[in-house]
Computed example of a mutant assay.
Amino acid sequence: MKIVTWNINSVRLRAPLLRQLMDELRPDVLCLQETKSPDEHFPHDAVAALGFEHRIIRGMKGYNGVAVLSHLPLTLRPNEPDWCARGDCRHLGVDVETPGGPIEVHNFYVPAGGDTPDRDANPKFAHKLDFIAEATAWTAGRGAAKRAVLVGDLNIAPLEHDVWSHKQMLGVVSHTPVEVEALTGWQRAGDWHDALRHFVPEEEKLYTWWSYRARDWEAADRGRRLDHVWVSRDLAPGLRRHQVLKAARGWEQCSDHVPVLVEVED
Score class of each variant (00 low, 15 high):
R58S: 15
L18T: 10
V110R: 03
R77Q: 12
R240A: 15
K167E: 14
E218M: 02
P117L: 06
E179S: 04
L13Y: 05
G223I: 01
Q253T: 14
P78S: 09
S211E: 06
T176S: 00
L261V: 03
P78Y: 04
L159E: 15
E179F: 03
N79I: 06
S10T: 14
Q243N: 13
E204W: 08
T35A: 10
R225H: 12
A144W: 01
A67W: 05
A145F: 07
W138P: 01
S211D: 11
K2W: 03
D162T: 03
V258H: 02
P177R: 11
K2M: 03
R240Y: 15
V68A: 10
W217M: 00
A144H: 06
Q33R: 11
A148M: 05
G59S: 13
A182M: 02
V105S: 04
E80S: 04
F199P: 08
S70E: 14
N107H: 04
E218W: 01
Q243G: 08
A133L: 07
A137G: 10
P73N: 08
M22D: 15
E179H: 04
W6V: 05
D191P: 07
A133E: 15
F52C: 13
D153T: 03
A182P: 02
P16V: 00
P16I: 00
E202H: 14
Q20M: 13
R224G: 03
L17R: 14
G250D: 12
P27L: 07
H257Q: 12
H166V: 00
P117E: 10
L21Y: 11
L18H: 11
H44A: 14
P123R: 02
R222M: 04
V29F: 13
L69V: 09
K36I: 08
D162R: 04
R147D: 15
P177M: 09
L13C: 07
L129I: 11
G59T: 12
A220P: 00
S37W: 13
V105C: 03
G250K: 08
R12I: 05
W209R: 07
L129P: 10
R86F: 05
M169K: 03
A15M: 07
G101F: 08
D120E: 15
R58W: 15
K61C: 07
